[in-house]
């Protein structure tokens, strides 16, 4: 029984370790900024193409 208990507690620890997520707020912001830049440039080029 003692063995089982320790195995159980080990798994729980592992699960908990997996659930601690890294903080990616800065990454999300950077990705969205790059995405926004790409979208704006794309719209700009396409609008120029359609207007001339």
């Amino acid at each position: 029984m003692a063995k089982l208990d320790s195995a159980k507690s080990f798994e729980t620890e592992k699960e908990q370790a997996g659930k601690t997520e890294p903080k990616l707020n800065g990454t999300l912001l950077s990705v969205m900024l790059v995405g926004g830049f790409i979208i704006l440039s794309w719209i700009g080029v396409y609008a120029l193409y359609l207007s001339r």
Binding site: L24, N25, L28, M32, G35
Partner: peptide, 12 residues
């Protein structure tokens, strides 16, 4: 497993 933010930018 994927981070919630990762899902957001992949879908975006």
């Amino acid at each position: 497993h994927m981070h919630k933010y990762e899902k957001i930018w992949l879908v975006f």
